[in-house]
């Protein structure tokens, strides 16, 4: 990975330059290698979402995870696969349907809001318009959005999105996390301690909170 870092969108890995989790697969157990490498291969075809839902979901995930360039972590396929296989956490709120139906309902609601505001489906709106619409939903707090508790909808969206994104080795490279650790384990735990295969953060002052202050 000398020319381009293995990160989402092949963006420069400014904090952990050259860090490549997949260079360590030889130190992992076979079962874990199988599970993780499946995420690198060709993603499963979309089966659960209708084409209209897929378009809205794609735009939603691009926004939630700020993915702007290919190669993207294929969130829409990963979430779709979970829903197609009913790999949910099982529970649902008594005032909401089960997860699959919530996805269908809320993607349709996103399109409805976009149509009302801009006469376009959500996916066809500009990035800024999409972001403003999403921010307005988040701002509702636990208020109602199309008859659903907005906070619970937001939590469901981000939970599915982050579970997919941060299970992907490209995302691990970007955050300096080495991923699987069996059977090798760690020998150097402690403040500022690193394993030989870990990369030092080149921008330790890049605290997102400090930038905001």
């Amino acid at each position: 990975m000398s020319e381009a870092d293995a990160t989402p969108g092949r963006s420069r890995n400014e904090r952990f330059p050259g860090f490549n989790v997949l260079a360590q697969t030889g130190a992992w157990d076979d079962v874990t290698v199988g599970v993780v490498m499946k995420r690198i291969g060709m993603p499963p075809d979309v089966r659960f979402f209708t084409p209209t839902e897929e378009a809205a979901a794609r735009a939603l995930f691009d926004q939630l995870l700020d993915q702007r360039e290919e190669p993207r972590v294929p969130i829409v396929n990963m979430v779709d696969a979970r829903l197609a296989e009913q790999e949910t956490d099982g529970w649902h709120y008594d005032d909401m349907p089960e997860d699959g139906q919530v996805w269908r309902d809320t993607l349709a609601a996103l399109d409805a809001d976009a149509m009302a505001a801009h006469a376009l489906p959500f996916a066809a709106c500009g990035r800024r318009e999409q972001a403003a619409l999403l921010q307005s939903i988040l701002s509702l707090g636990s208020g109602a959005w199309h008859g659903l508790n907005a906070e619970r909808v937001w939590s469901l969206w981000t939970r599915y999105a982050c579970t997919a994104f941060y299970s992907h080795p490209w995302a691990w490279n970007e955050i300096g996390f080495p991923g699987p650790a069996y059977p090798r384990g760690y020998k150097h735990a402690g403040v500022n301690a690193r394993e030989p295969f870990e990369v030092r953060d080149r921008r330790p002052d890049d605290d997102p909170a400090a930038r905001r202050r």
């Binding site: 904090r15 926004q63 939630l64 995870l65 700020d66 972001a131 999403l134 988040l138 981000t158 982050c162 941060y166 995302a171 970007e174 955050i175 300096g176 996390f177 953060d201 330790p204 890049d206 605290d207 997102p208 930038r211």
Partner: peptide, 16 residues
């Protein structure tokens, strides 16, 4: 309430 760019930035800061 972080999402998008802010979410990614916080996650890149994970080791701290």
């Amino acid at each position: 309430g972080y999402w998008g760019q802010a979410l990614r930035a916080y996650l890149r800061d994970y080791v701290h």
